Computed example of a mutant assay.
Amino acid sequence: MDIQLTIKNVTPEAYDDLKEFLSKHAERVTLDTEWTPERAERYYRQLPDRARKIVREAAIRDGYVSADDLRDTEDSSLRGHSAALKQVLERGERKGWWPPEMPAPIEPQGKGFGKVDGYRMPDDLVGVFFTAIKKVSDPMAAANIATGQE
């Protein structure tokens, strides 16, 4: 038995009921929490410019971008840049673009409490997001990547 579900516009109560039902069959149920190029593109398109820069630079730099590389000037603060990363992830959950268990595609690195040293994207997501970013930035180049004609 293979159970595949696509959930859109689900209420929190209905989702809780569904999780309870599925927990009875947990050994046969897997949630699709994989970042696909389509999901990555939708996520990236929803981000404001400052947050897009974080994702773009991390993808370009093989998964890690330092805070210094993100600053426009030596003294500029990165405060507020990453809030949108979480907000778009949550919005996607609410709108049914991906399941609530979807992992964040990029995480702040550092001591916490406001100041970050940089941002890390998991290695397996770098290519997925690079392709999505390329498609958003240059649709013709993305078509060439898809057909292997870089």
Rank of each mutant, 00 (worst) to 15 (best):
D2K: 13
Q4V: 04
Q4E: 12
L5D: 04
L5H: 08
L5G: 11
L5N: 09
I7A: 09
K8S: 12
N9S: 13
V10H: 11
T11P: 08
P12E: 04
P12L: 04
E13G: 07
A14G: 02
K19R: 15
E20Q: 10
E20N: 06
S23T: 07
S23L: 06
K24D: 00
K24R: 05
K24S: 07
H25E: 06
A26I: 06
A26Y: 01
E27R: 14
R28G: 08
T30V: 01
T30M: 08
T30W: 03
D32S: 12
D32R: 11
T33D: 13
E34C: 07
P37Q: 14
R39Q: 09
R39V: 02
R42Q: 11
R42I: 10
Y43N: 02
R45P: 00
R45T: 11
Q46G: 00
L47W: 10
D49F: 06
R50S: 04
R50I: 01
A51I: 06
R52D: 04
K53G: 04
I54C: 02
I54G: 01
V55R: 02
V55T: 08
E57Y: 08
A59I: 01
A59S: 12
I60D: 03
D62K: 15
Y64G: 02
Y64L: 01
V65G: 10
V65S: 08
S66Q: 07
S66K: 08
D68W: 00
D68Q: 14
D69A: 15
D69E: 15
L70G: 01
R71Q: 15
D72V: 00
E74M: 01
D75H: 11
S76H: 08
S77Q: 15
S77R: 15
S77E: 15
L78A: 11
L78K: 11
L78S: 09
R79I: 08
R79G: 08
G80F: 09
S82D: 13
A84P: 05
L85G: 05
L85C: 05
K86Y: 13
V88I: 10
V88S: 03
L89Q: 13
E90P: 00
E90V: 12
E90C: 00
G92A: 01
G92V: 06
E93V: 12
E93D: 14
P100E: 09
P100G: 10
P100N: 14
P105A: 06
P105S: 05
P105I: 09
I106L: 05
P108Q: 07
P108R: 08
Q109E: 09
Q109T: 03
G110W: 01
G114F: 13
K115Q: 11
V116D: 03
G118Q: 06
Y119T: 04
Y119P: 00
P122M: 13
D124C: 02
L125P: 04
V126C: 05
G127I: 07
V128E: 01
V128K: 06
F130E: 12
T131L: 15
T131W: 12
A132S: 12
V136R: 14
D138F: 12
P139N: 13
A141Y: 02
A141P: 00
A141V: 10
A141D: 08
A141E: 12
A143I: 13
N144H: 14
N144F: 12
A146G: 07
A146S: 07
A146H: 09
T147A: 12
Q149I: 09
Q149C: 01
E150W: 15
